[in-house]
Amino acid sequence: MTAVLTLDSSGRLVLPKCFRDKMHLQAGARLRVDMVGDKLEMRQDDAPVKLVRRGKRRVITGWVGFDAAKAVREMREDQVARLEAPFHK
């Protein structure tokens, strides 16, 4: 995916919805931006995930709004699309 983004007068960018959906980003998501040479690399910052005890069980917390089933479906769809793409030499 490729997009051309424009800075507003306060220096902000808006990520297109398709990017936010692909990375499962919601309002308040933290992104890490690194300058590598003359390029910017952006990736999701690791969320503070914890293992807590709830009764007799241990539960992972910190993944607010993450839909694992949807993520797996999307990964499978991406893989199928790559496998169905014509091979170019």
Rank of each mutant, 00 (worst) to 15 (best):
S9E: 11
S10D: 10
S10V: 15
S10T: 12
R12M: 05
R12A: 02
R12S: 01
L13K: 00
V14D: 15
V14C: 15
L15C: 01
K17R: 12
C18S: 14
R20P: 02
D21Y: 14
K22P: 00
H24W: 04
G28C: 05
A29M: 00
L31P: 01
L31W: 03
R32S: 03
V33H: 11
D34P: 01
M35I: 11
M35A: 14
G37C: 03
G37D: 06
G37R: 06
G37S: 07
G37A: 07
D38P: 00
K39N: 00
L40F: 03
E41D: 13
M42Q: 03
Q44K: 04
Q44E: 05
Q44R: 08
Q44A: 04
D46L: 12
A47R: 03
A47Q: 11
P48Y: 10
P48Q: 12
P48N: 11
V49M: 00
L51W: 02
L51N: 10
L51F: 08
V52R: 07
V52S: 10
R53W: 07
R53Y: 08
R53L: 10
R54N: 10
R54D: 11
G55L: 01
K56V: 00
R57H: 13
R58C: 07
V59T: 04
T61S: 05
W63R: 07
W63I: 03
G65F: 01
G65W: 01
F66T: 05
D67H: 04
D67F: 04
D67T: 09
D67G: 02
A68T: 13
K70D: 02
A71Q: 08
R73M: 08
R73G: 15
E74H: 14
E74Y: 11
M75W: 09
R76M: 13
R76A: 14
R76K: 12
R76G: 14
E77R: 12
D78W: 02
V80T: 06
V80N: 12
V80F: 14
